[in-house]
Amino acid sequence: MNELLHSPLAVVLVAAAATFIWRALGAVLVGRIDPEGAVVRWFTLTSYALLAALVVRLVGLPTGSLGTVSLSIRLTAVVVTLAVWWATGRSVLLGVLAGTGCLVAAVAWAPGF
């Protein structure tokens, strides 16, 4: 039982249920909620804060293989992502490709950086 609760399948089903609840609630409450109201504004701001905290965890406190890459490489890759995104007139694709390419190149040729 304990193993089942910590299985990937249980994690997937829990995450799916946690997401489905909001979708279904939105479908049921259509027309009864002000999309510009205070609750919705709090939801949006909290989502932004969560995504920012998630980036800090993924880059700064990685739990998996990314943790074997030095922090300086990870941070440089984020800076390159933002710099190229900004320099190319806010191109999401080029920014992401450049940052990822930077990480790949650094791991391949300068792993001690």
């Binding site: 910590h6 249980a10 997401t19 909620i33 939801f43 989502s47 969560l50």
Partner: peptide
């Protein structure tokens, strides 16, 4: 996935996933 690998239990995962997906509510509305 991040919480699963750092040892989070199902309740913690449910709460965090629900927070991450809250935006679907106003989007659906």
């Amino acid at each position: 996935a991040d919480l699963y690998t750092s040892g989070g239990d199902l309740v913690a995962i449910a709460i965090a996933a629900a927070l991450a997906s809250m935006r679907f509510f106003p989007m659906a509305v």
